[in-house]
Write a protein that binds this DNA or RNA. Structure first.
Lengths: 201, 201
DNA sequence: CCTACCGATCGGTAGG
DNA sequence: CCTACCGATCGGTAGG
């Protein structure tokens, strides 16, 4: 019995390829400046073909964001698994998050600003994915506040922390002198207001 | 002697109006998603008329960014004039900057991400305007580090601070419970790792 | 600064 | 998933 012409597994792969290409291009050029033709070309398709997998360009953004955030969330969970000390947990969260932002190829958390192109329903679903992503952060910040290493873990603190980290995508250069490790260290030091680790070696 | 039909002063006003409208729309909808027709309509012009004042849409973004940043810079200078204590200076810088971002109608610092639509020459000029804007910040951070209130004033610290503040434009709601004053306070407290001011009243 | 317009591009679709 | 295509929109310009 010969193989069927279209294997279901391949179709799922094509979908995932489209999502990765879309996420990367949306981050690089922005949602509005990225054409569906750009995305098609990035995965070797013709201009109309992405619409076989996704109903619209918006749908592509929505799926890229939600699936990217949940994947990042799984990475966070795996990274802090078994780490009890809150300061160490924070270090790992920060380093993992910066890795996703600066070294990954999906970088979904950076697409928040592009959700303005979506309707309310999509934005609500994306907000829920963001909420899930923030859970381990809030827990860690509260533990640090309880142990006195952080002055406050009130709601704006978490958001300020994300800002501090996410904004680095606007200025960080992979080819510069500052490594991602050193940046993670600088961020944690700023938060806890302690000397950066490199300072005493 | 009757008035001339076109007064030179009015023409400069129209240019300024276009810049303000462009900056606001670019922040709200993004550069690519904002049409020159949107901008024209916002100031009561017809679709082709903005091109009487600016050569291209890119030119409009460039001018909005540079003039906006320099105006913001002048505001910062005026606000910290005569304040000697570095902690107080930081408080004023943060509050003034957040005012520009969240309460102003130009909000130019938020347009960094849109400069990807410009050519290298324009980006270089905008980078210079950003450098000017950052001078008072770096001086203040260094003074704080010298007095021991801040663990480090190394270059990434300033950038992390800007990230912390600028990112708030993605989540801050003018109609929420958190005032800009309280947000400024939370940010300064996080930086110095001291209890927020509201905590002891 | 307006009128009238152009060429190019874009998201999306029909039909296979 | 491709071919062929459409309607709409957009940045920009000529001429006044």
């Amino acid at each position: 019995m010969p193989r069927k012409k279209t294997e279901p597994k391949l179709e799922a792969n094509r979908r995932a390829e489209l999502l990765r290409a879309a996420a990367r291009l949306f981050v690089e050029k922005g949602f509005a400046a990225t054409t569906t033709r750009d995305i098609a070309e990035a995965v070797g398709m013709r201009s109309g073909s992405p619409f076989y997998h996704f109903r619209s360009k918006q749908e592509l953004l929505k799926a890229a964001m939600i699936e990217g955030l949940d994947a990042g969330n799984a990475q966070l969970a795996a990274a802090i698994e078994g780490i009890a000390d809150p300061e160490q947990r924070l270090r790992v969260l920060v380093r993992t998050h910066l890795g996703t932002l600066l070294e990954g190829d999906c970088r979904s958390p950076l697409l928040v600003s592009e959700t303005r192109a979506l309707d309310d329903k999509a934005r609500t679903e994306i907000a829920a994915a963001f909420d899930r992503y923030q859970v381990p952060w809030q827990e860690t910040l509260e533990a640090l506040a309880k142990s006195g290493k952080l002055a406050s873990a009130a709601p704006p603190v978490r958001l300020l922390v994300f800002g501090m980290l996410n904004w680095s995508s606007h200025w960080y250069r992979t080819d510069g002198a500052l490594t991602v490790d050193a940046l993670a260290d600088a961020a944690v030091s700023m938060l806890l207001n302690t000397a950066p680790r490199g300072a005493d070696s």
